[in-house]
Design a protein around this nucleic acid. Structure first.
Ligand SMILES: NC(=O)c1ccc[n+]([C@@H]2O[C@H](COP(=O)([O-])OP(=O)(O)OC[C@H]3O[C@@H](n4cnc5c(N)ncnc54)[C@H](O)[C@@H]3O)[C@@H](O)[C@H]2O)c1
Ligand SMILES: NC(=O)c1ccc[n+]([C@@H]2O[C@H](COP(=O)([O-])OP(=O)(O)OC[C@H]3O[C@@H](n4cnc5c(N)ncnc54)[C@H](O)[C@@H]3O)[C@@H](O)[C@H]2O)c1
Lengths: 223, 223
DNA sequence: AAGAGTTTGTGAACGGGGGCACAAAACGAG
DNA sequence: CTCGTTTTGTGCCCCCGTTCACAAACTCTT
């Protein structure tokens, strides 16, 4: 709780939400959306926690970082809480996104409808392979990787997705950063390094399977 | 996540490796493979840590849970360490895997070569949609979801991947568990519940993007 | 053989996060 | 208004994981 984020110029406005909580807020949001679709107007922390698959005390503590949006003895107003979480995460606005590497995975991502429905809009699909240019995937043209800079500045893109081979990932990341992208989601199985101020999250399928394999092997050893 | 495993019947054989360490071992393994391909025979914890993108003290502590495989003043033998990690994770053997839901994502996964190269073999592709049956993806037939039980028992499948819609995920998981699958990798954006002894890991693209959006919004608020 | 230089393995301190349990707050009934 | 019921918000404690820092162990040189 000391040196973190040294000077903050604006009042005390920007609250500090624990990383673990940030990672769960989208889960709560999804659960609330499901409840709202089912016509539920109000819910207790217990109900919401069950729907989200977490402990109710943890849920309440998480929500308390956003403010005091519940009513004791009653619970939470589903729509109100939904809005508050969406605002906190930043998905009340639309985020333009570019995807680089339109192979097997890139196609699947481009066709994924869950993007748009959660506040993300794919504004460009880029690939280094000339033979792919001009192809239309999910209504978007596949364009040359060199168009990155123009697209980023035109649309004000802050988030980039890497679905290129591991060998190209660092290069792609460097180019993204040079264009002004400050958040990267990396699907390539490689460690990429970026300057301070740029966030990288990685999704690594093989690692997930290997973790499962480890536990599986362990179960087998116990018998 | 995993059941607590209270009593341990066998001697003291099965070491307890922290979950956080387990999640990093595959990263180390990948870095070692890259080093080996480059002809490196030996490496220090500092080098390996850099390649893996972690702190060297953390790397050494992680490796120390496996045993004492380094040489002070020298470092680690790349091939030897590679084997030890692979053995510990359980990827010296081949793990048969089934994928359920062969839509956009399922196709990409089935075509992913990173599977086989890391000790996982896709033995079946299953889909509830009859019109997809008989299609061949990456050399494997798409078959009826009802064939699950037969396939699992024939091949001794322990690991299942869910790439079906969120609405179907819980059903698919239940069927998997009923057939004897004890590890599930879930790509559907829904919370699934399983009995003790079954491990579930989820990969949720939208959540990753929302986490990035949160930080992106925060960066914007600071200016 | 001894000393200088390297690098591992780990004890110890620290910080974040999880969960219990309870006081505070809202609400309804009488 | 008062009492009983419900449910939130949070203080407190404990555990896990991270990092520092150093002694132990090994190599190489002289
Ligand atoms: N397919 C999967 O299910 C899957 C799963 C997990 C991870 N991944 C990873 O995702 C990445 C993509 O996988 P894939 O199966 O789609 O591979 P792919 O070979 O089908 O597609 C890669 C695409 O990237 C393009 N590309 C290559 N170099 C590029 C560059 N420098 N700039 C821009 N584009 C470039 C290629 O032209 C190709 O279209 C890989 O790193 C892979 O390891 C894939
Ligand atoms: N496409 C992506 O990039 C992406 C990314 C992240 C998450 N996801 C998630 O992965 C899942 C699959 O996405 P998709 O884009 O491939 O969807 P999709 O609609 O293209 O494919 C879903 C497939 O599942 C099959 N299916 C439906 N019900 C089934 C059942 N009960 N049993 C077996 N199979 C069944 C359908 O016939 C279809 O072939 C979804 O839950 C989606 O939210 C997709």
């Amino acid at each position: 709780m000391t040196a973190r984020t040294p000077s903050r110029t604006l009042g005390e406005s920007v609250r500090d939400i624990p990383e673990a909580t940030v990672a769960r807020l989208p889960v709560y949001l999804r659960a609330l959306n499901t409840l709202a679709e089912a016509g539920t107007r109000t819910c207790s922390s217990e109900e919401l926690a069950t729907a989200a698959g977490v402990n109710s005390a943890k849920l309440r503590k998480d929500l308390s970082y956003l403010g005091s949006y519940g009513t004791r003895g009653v619970g939470y107003d589903v729509d109100y809480l939904r809005y508050q979480i969406a605002r906190e995460i930043g998905v009340t606005q639309d985020w333009p996104v570019v995807i680089v590497g339109i192979g097997n995975l890139g196609h699947a991502l481009a066709n994924y409808s869950g993007f748009r429905s959660r506040g993300f809009r794919v504004v460009a699909l880029l690939d280094a392979d000339h033979s792919r240019h001009g192809e239309v995937v999910a209504g978007v043209d596949v364009r040359a990787f060199d168009d990155l800079e123009e697209i980023v500045s035109t649309h004000g893109v802050a988030i980039g997705v890497i679905a290129a081979p591991a060998a190209a990932a660092q290069d792609v990341a460097d180019r993204m950063v040079a264009c002004g992208i400050t958040s990267i989601l990396n699907f390539a199985p490689s460690v990429i390094s970026v300057p301070d101020g740029v966030d990288v999250r990685k999704v690594d399928l093989s690692i997930e399977l290997q973790i499962l394999a480890y536990h599986e092997q362990r179960k087998a050893q116990l018998s």
